[in-house]
Amino acid sequence: MNAQIPRDRTQVGTSPPAVSQFADGTPDAVRLDGVAKAFGSFVAVRDVNLSLRKGSLTSLLGPSGCGKTTLLRLIAGLETASRGEIAINGRSVGNVAIHKRNIGLVFQNYALFPHKTVAENIGFGLKYRGVAKAEMAAKIKRALDVVRLPGMEERYPNQLSGGQQQRIALARAVVFEPDVLLLDEPLSALDANLRDNMRVEIKLIQKALGLTTILVTHDQQEALAMSDEIVVMNQGVVQQIGDPKSVYRFPRNRFVAGFLGQANICGCEVLESAADTSGQWRVRLDNGTELWAVPGGETRQMPVRAGDRADVVIRGSDMKLSVSEPRDAALPGNRLAGSIVDSSYLGDDTQYVVDVGGTNFKLSQRTSREDGAGAGDLLRPGTRVFITVARDACAILGVS
């Protein structure tokens, strides 16, 4: 018997029921309406509503235990929802077995048969679909061409590199032309350089085939680089849905801001609004520092009043560091003074921790050859520095 899960519409990120098509008339490829899953008394997924555009790549992003893998398994048919409806291409699949859902799956560990050749691995699903041998051979060859591994039919998995094995797993998942491709942490077993290359490869293959794809990942950079849309999850609840830029630049809440990218989050009191129509508000951080900020959140529109308690979020990449105090007071932007606490040379970037009024801010500066930037050129702890950050790069969240 399915577990009974109480509905909780007060949860952050609970969205209205998904619709059957988008505003431009494009039908959805995958739709989830009020989907929930419980394992005994533990609720892994709560009231998820999603509508995914055909041909898009959507990332389910969040920390371990947030429910993203459970949601993927529900779509695949590896788990049964405790409540709600899942539809693929307009057809409800709640009672449809996994092998009848026409879904391609790529797992974290590739799941290749070690005793079978590449051709036998790729053709495994075709064999059980009753595809004739000649047609199967043609499809396998075409799939290998797609993943740029032609002529590999007779090799065995132990004769392939990790990246090649991942491509074979991808070829096996797309060879029968699935309606939806599901990727469960497909790059986590690869080293950093190969992972970066495979991000590009998977994205190019997905776009070339026009496959509706859902990617499960805990890697923020992976989600930002690959996705048309990101679904941020925490504790089984969808926190925010949007394209990478909107989710990164305009996080809905403190969790999204802190999880996606480098963010400095400070408690504050709202003091007053600007006299002009800019929508800016002067706030006082808990350490006494005052600056100007704008309402943030997914819609960038929220009621803000003088005296409110709130959080201010500032991305480290928006903070510009200088050892010289800015002289032109007419230039817009917030100006903060502090001292270096720590510095890390990361090649293309240098990361600093700066103490401003007793609060540590993390920020990144692009390393340039002209600066002679190297490990020996890092600003030392105790160096007095100045930070400039645009007013509209400071977002007010969580007003109370």
Results as ranks from 00 to 15, higher is better:
residue 388 T to C: 04
residue 374 G to C: 14
residue 389 V to N: 05
residue 104 G to D: 02
residue 81 A to M: 09
residue 20 S to D: 15
residue 326 P to H: 05
residue 8 D to C: 03
residue 85 E to Q: 14
residue 102 N to C: 01
residue 172 R to K: 12
residue 104 G to S: 06
residue 243 D to F: 02
residue 214 I to L: 14
residue 124 F to T: 05
residue 349 D to F: 12
residue 348 D to F: 02
residue 310 A to N: 06
residue 287 N to G: 09
residue 73 R to L: 02
residue 65 G to V: 09
residue 307 G to I: 12
residue 75 I to N: 02
residue 275 A to Q: 13
residue 294 V to H: 06
residue 330 A to W: 03
residue 127 K to M: 10
residue 180 V to W: 07
residue 91 R to M: 06
residue 313 V to H: 01
residue 81 A to I: 04
residue 205 I to N: 07
residue 285 L to M: 15
residue 24 D to C: 12
residue 6 P to M: 00
residue 208 A to V: 00
residue 96 V to L: 14
residue 318 D to K: 12
residue 367 T to D: 12
residue 173 A to L: 04
residue 269 E to V: 11
residue 97 A to R: 14
residue 165 Q to T: 01
residue 106 V to M: 01
residue 64 S to K: 04
residue 292 W to N: 09
residue 110 Y to H: 07
residue 336 L to T: 06
residue 322 S to H: 11
residue 295 P to C: 12
residue 83 R to S: 15
residue 339 S to T: 14
residue 186 P to Y: 08
residue 267 G to M: 01
residue 128 Y to P: 00
residue 229 E to C: 01
residue 270 V to C: 09
residue 306 A to N: 11
residue 265 I to G: 05
residue 97 A to D: 12
residue 149 L to H: 10
residue 196 D to E: 12
residue 221 Q to V: 14
residue 125 G to K: 01
residue 111 A to T: 13
residue 351 Q to T: 09
residue 328 D to C: 02
residue 321 L to A: 06
residue 279 G to Y: 10
residue 251 P to N: 03
residue 14 T to Y: 03
residue 186 P to G: 03
residue 400 S to I: 06
residue 365 Q to I: 11
residue 360 N to T: 10
residue 268 C to A: 15
residue 372 G to P: 03
residue 222 E to W: 01
residue 193 N to L: 11
residue 378 L to V: 10
residue 233 M to G: 13
residue 1 M to Y: 02
residue 15 S to H: 11
residue 365 Q to F: 00
residue 212 T to L: 04
residue 375 A to I: 14
residue 258 G to V: 13
